[in-house]
């Protein structure tokens, strides 16, 4: 067990170092010169040279990488050439907003996906199952940035029941920052009005993001339930006369929940990606939106920061998922 955890951590470290190299070399080797772009079209040779020296771009690549890694280890993610701000504090400010959105999306995915999968399993191969299958495939086929626009058009523009963009009412003060997640902060400070406001802003983007997880969770729950329903202990329980509803909700679902948990863990990363475009459309001040503006201005330091942070978060969630799996299912032994 201890060995397994250590092994996972070592592997994770390798992956993270590799990730830092990948982002670094993508940013530095591939042609577009960030300094030229930052300096603007009218900068003189001398000004460009000065900028190069200031950001250390005149040094050999390997030296630049070593320096970048050194800075990273000290928690310094570098300085944006375009924004002329440090990337670290920016990420710290924007990440809670993204995390809030992603967690809300995963919550929606579970709350809607589990019942959908349950219905599909109970009515296996009949109409509800077929509908659930089409629904699931449909949900992973919808471009989420387009769905975001459709929701804006319907809910905000035509029906005017939800705000168009943003994260909180501009005329009101958001709840005091504890976690940086408005809904959580509002609940912690028992400010239910702010909670309601934050929720109204969050619901549409979170729903757009939830579809991939929702669909996959529904399919996983269906498959696992069908597996469990075919086992001996369920047959015995049925023979003893336990009603079907109790059987499914109390016995089968419990055993099917393990894979669902893994799916939620896996979909953390997927949902985080989706948030890049959805945040942009809803003007949600998260790291996705930050990454898009950095990509458009070819500002690589923030882009690298976002990539690293995302990779780190995903690796962390994977480890936690594995750990839960280990704790929840004593049959699993990690030996190798």
């Amino acid at each position: 067990m201890v060995r397994f955890v250590l092994q996972r951590l070592a592997l994770t470290l390798v992956v993270l170092i590799g990730l830092s190299m990948l982002t670094f070399f993508v940013a530095r080797i591939i042609p577009a010169d960030p300094i030229l772009l930052a300096a603007g079209p009218r900068a003189s040779e001398a000004q460009i040279q000065l900028l190069r020296e200031r950001y250390g771009y005149d040094r050999p690549l390997v030296e630049q990488y070593v320096r970048y890694m050194g800075d990273l280890l000290r928690g310094d993610l570098g300085t944006s050439v375009v924004l002329k701000r440090d990337v670290g504090p920016d990420l710290a400010r924007y990440f809670p907003a993204t995390l809030e959105l992603v967690l809300a999306a995963l919550l929606i995915g579970v709350l809607l996906g589990v019942p959908l999968g349950l219905v599909a399993a109970v009515y296996r191969d009949r109409l509800p199952d077929q509908i659930s299958r089409v629904f699931s495939l449909g949900m992973v086929s919808i471009p989420n940035f387009w769905l975001a626009i459709v929701l804006q058009l319907i809910l905000a523009f035509t029906l005017t029941i939800l705000p168009f963009t943003g994260r909180f009412d501009r005329l009101l003060h958001p709840p005091p920052t504890l976690t940086g997640m408005y809904t959580v902060d509002a609940l912690l400070t028992l400010n239910f009005e702010a909670f309601g406001t934050a929720l109204r802003y969050m619901i549409a983007p979170a729903f757009c993001l939830s579809l991939g997880a929702l669909a996959t969770i529904a399919r996983t729950v269906r498959a696992d339930l069908l597996d469990v329903l075919g086992t001996d202990y369920i047959r015995t329980a049925r023979a003893v006369g336990i009603p079907t509803s109790v059987l499914i909700l109390k016995y089968a679902l419990k055993n099917a929940s393990l894979n669902t948990l893994t799916q939620v863990g896996l979909f953390f990363g997927y949902t985080l990606t989706g948030s890049v475009l959805v945040e942009n459309i809803f003007s949600w001040p998260g790291i996705g939106n930050y990454a898009v503006s950095a990509a458009l201005t070819k500002d690589f330091v923030p882009l690298m920061g976002v990539t690293l942070l995302t990779g780190f978060a995903i690796v962390l969630v994977n480890i936690v998922t594995d750990f839960f799996y280990l704790v929840l299912d004593p049959r699993i032994k990690y030996t190798s």
Binding site: G269, Y270, T273, V276, T307, V315
Partner: peptide, 11 residues
């Protein structure tokens, strides 16, 4: 590890 869209965006 890194979401495809994010990496593709950087590339």
């Amino acid at each position: 590890t890194v979401p495809a869209l994010l990496l593709a965006m950087a590339m």
